[in-house]
Design a protein around this nucleic acid. Sequence first.
DNA 1: GTCGTTATTATGTCTAGACATAATCTCGCG
DNA 2: CGCGAGATTATGTCTAGACATAATAACGAC
Lengths: 257, 257
Amino acid sequence: MISWALHRRITADLAGEIASGAWPPGHRIPFEHELMARYGCARATVNKAVHALAVQGLVERRRKAGTFVAPPHVASAVLSIPDIKAEIEARGQAYAWRRISWRIRRAQSEPDAAELKPAGALLAIKGLHMAAGRPFGLEERLVNLAEVPVAGDEDFARVSPGAWLLAHVAWSEARHEIAAANPDVETAEALGVTRGHACLVLKRWTWRQDAGITFARLTFPAEAFELTARFAPGFADHGPVRARIPSRSDESKEGRP
Amino acid sequence: MISWALHRRITADLAGEIASGAWPPGHRIPFEHELMARYGCARATVNKAVHALAVQGLVERRRKAGTFVAPPHVASAVLSIPDIKAEIEARGQAYAWRRISWRIRRAQSEPDAAELKPAGALLAIKGLHMAAGRPFGLEERLVNLAEVPVAGDEDFARVSPGAWLLAHVAWSEARHEIAAANPDVETAEALGVTRGHACLVLKRWTWRQDAGITFARLTFPAEAFELTARFAPGFADHGPVRARIPSRSDESKEGRP
DNA sequence: GTCGTTATTATGTCTAGACATAATCTCGCG
DNA sequence: CGCGAGATTATGTCTAGACATAATAACGAC
């Protein structure tokens, strides 16, 4: 399935015209029957090619009118939220999870979990992701026990709730918030930084078929974590993108492809 | 093009089995000829349906072996980097751009621009995005004059380089880094915050066909800016997602759909 | 048993049609 | 001139085949 399939070549050709600016936004690209003639193939083939562009958002198609180059929409990037343990180990450092607390709480007492619309009890776990023996990130997790009762059997002393949930619970939708923040006293102490030390805060809500599963707040000291996203307009195959964990001694840029 | 199309129904049916967990990761879904029989249609139709799942990353296909439910892929999110002016105005605040400096620099003097592989001179602009008369974010921009010579004719006193480039220059690829950081002295002063005030730093490199166009570093005080992303595994139509700009007086959550 | 060869098989791609659907354009009526 | 009816047209969807490709499985030679 390399790109010598004709429909892929057509898609690439058309995408090239758009990327180069030769076909500006609003420009009507050739009709399918014109592309049929140009490439000497069946309409199903050019349809597949142009349809792929439409899925990527590079063009808009209107019956009877034709196919038009889409306005340069604000970039959409594929961003992947990584498995922290895998990222740390990929960097050659020892990973460890250290649980700080485990509690059952009433849903009402956790405003962050409101979006999940939890019915009854929540499992509240707090712990540290450690890299090379040092605090790497703080995880504060709420799990909706009404939806994931089996989570009550797990004490999360050896495995982080994030990793456990990923392996045990299917999810269908999620929402993230990424922001910077100064840590509160408790968080600063757990991470071993001062309150004036900038942190990256990643909040995540997860649902399964409209049922709220879990909420997580991950707090990383600024130098420990960085999200990167490489992409093309309408996302091409430029690889799902990873979180990069800068080395503590890494002041220079790295040229990952 | 509502979802009455048979191939869409098939895609949705299969996606439902996966989302519900009925077909766990690694499970072999029915062969195309089985789906043909089940839905009473041609193979091209079921192929289109299953192919769509593969594009979304929900399944992996192997010739001869069959089609398998993909491992619970670390989430891939659609993230959109917004037009700052539009976001601020959408919030009902007055937007303004205030240029701080405009200079021509040699490429070598800017390590951040190294990834762009600039040949000659760079245009270096620094300025503030203002919301309701107060500093909202600092933009530090480098433009590769070898690739965008017309940028030299613009003084960027009234319009931010980000907005100008979006409207005038086509791009084909970009890379982002999102991180938290403490501002340096100069940045803190421009934003009117202390050095201990956490900031969200968004770096962006942009290319057009392997030619480096521009680099930007955007620095926002923690409370001013927040990225949100809502998505489903393998991205469904859950709307391209926006950056959320929290109100300064907004301590509570908001439940945007 | 191990290694290489061959047959099998599911997916990948493509064709030459067909009808459906929705938007646009044209034309004529008032 | 405004406006609705009908003709036109590009895309959307689908069929029933076909050959190509790649990976597995079965088989045989050593």
